[in-house]
Amino acid sequence: MEKKLSEMGYEEEGIVIKILGGLRYKIAGMGIRKGKGIKMMTKQPIKGPVVVTVDRSNTSIGLGLADKILVQVKK
């Protein structure tokens, strides 16, 4: 199933399939890119950021930015 990163639930895992706009240049160096496995670690209340795990590193991403990342979620 395809979802925005911001819509993924706790502990859900998936593969990044698309990163919209200029964001992909910004996060390329952080290891988040098309085809990469990604896991949701936490989500914060009051529209706080998500924290995801990619290649053993944790990255915190604002919710609006997470909207721009599309993920194929594993069932």
Partner: peptide, 10 residues
């Protein structure tokens, strides 16, 4: 060394 991939990118 625990995050070689992204380090290699740079």
């Amino acid at each position: 060394a625990s995050k070689v991939e992204r380090g290699l990118y740079l």
